[in-house]
Amino acid sequence: MSRVASIVCAVSLVLYGASCFILPASTPRGAPQQGAGAVAQPSASSVAPESAGSWSPIAIGAALGLLAAVATARPALAADLENGEAVFQGNCTACHAGGNNSIVAEKKLKKDALVTYGKYDVGAIITQVTNGNGSMPAFGDKLGPDDIEDVANYVYNKADKW
């Protein structure tokens, strides 16, 4: 339901924004202003007729393109947990399967162990993965910054479930 509400809201905003750029500005057609500072108005016969219903095809295309982009876009997340899981499976499970540690048994990836060693923080996990420490090798040269952030968020979110 929230996705439908988001789409309806986005469509409303796009249409309102498009109307600001697409619809021509209407000028009131009243009598010319009188007064000392008034500028003489040209006669009606010398002004080109203005079409009140003219629409710009470029603006319509831009509005529809924006609508399609908003309606089909995936929400941007700070961390991609699916990618983090894939990176973890490819690089970390050899030593950390199931949140355990096959090298140093007490240094697991479970919440209580991470809290004990001061690593229950995404920033601390990023530092650990990037630089390594003790028996753990550094992955800063092997993985990109986005992959390291994703795997750190994955470990942090998975720590209380292991």
Rank of each mutant, 00 (worst) to 15 (best):
41 Q>E: 14
55 W>G: 10
103 I>S: 00
25 A>G: 10
147 D>G: 09
93 T>M: 13
104 V>F: 09
92 C>N: 03
56 S>C: 12
89 Q>D: 15
129 V>N: 03
109 L>G: 15
20 C>N: 08
154 Y>G: 12
19 S>E: 06
9 C>T: 07
32 P>V: 03
137 P>V: 06
110 K>M: 11
22 I>P: 05
25 A>R: 09
135 S>W: 07
7 I>N: 03
145 P>Y: 08
39 V>C: 04
1 M>K: 07
160 D>Y: 04
153 N>H: 15
14 V>R: 05
76 A>L: 05
110 K>H: 10
80 D>R: 11
14 V>H: 02
153 N>L: 01
54 S>K: 13
157 N>T: 11
131 N>H: 09
55 W>L: 15
127 T>C: 01
48 A>L: 14
115 V>H: 01
87 V>W: 09
35 G>L: 01
13 L>V: 13
123 G>L: 03
116 T>I: 05
67 L>N: 08
99 G>C: 01
7 I>G: 06
39 V>L: 08
55 W>E: 11
80 D>C: 08
75 P>F: 00
50 E>M: 13
141 D>R: 05
11 V>T: 12
24 P>C: 06
130 T>K: 05
58 I>M: 07
36 A>K: 11
103 I>Y: 00
65 G>M: 02
119 K>A: 13
53 G>C: 09
23 L>A: 08
105 A>M: 07
75 P>R: 01
115 V>I: 11
141 D>Q: 15
120 Y>I: 09
140 G>P: 04
20 C>M: 15
7 I>P: 03
150 D>V: 08
110 K>L: 08
119 K>W: 07
106 E>T: 13
85 E>Q: 15
138 A>W: 02
91 N>K: 02
57 P>M: 07
100 N>P: 02
139 F>W: 15
95 C>I: 00
81 L>F: 08
56 S>V: 12
52 A>Q: 14
84 G>W: 03
61 G>H: 09
27 T>E: 15
28 P>I: 07
46 S>N: 04
42 P>H: 05
148 I>P: 05
50 E>Q: 15
62 A>M: 11
25 A>F: 10
55 W>R: 15
42 P>L: 05
29 R>F: 11
113 A>K: 00
21 F>W: 13
30 G>A: 03
78 A>D: 13
56 S>Y: 07
122 V>C: 05
4 V>L: 14
31 A>D: 10
50 E>I: 13
32 P>W: 01
129 V>D: 03
31 A>C: 09
103 I>P: 00
5 A>L: 12
6 S>T: 12
31 A>L: 15
112 D>C: 00
122 V>Q: 12
53 G>Q: 04
156 Y>C: 05
81 L>P: 03
114 L>Y: 05
66 L>F: 08
92 C>F: 05
112 D>M: 01
12 S>T: 03
32 P>G: 10
73 A>P: 04
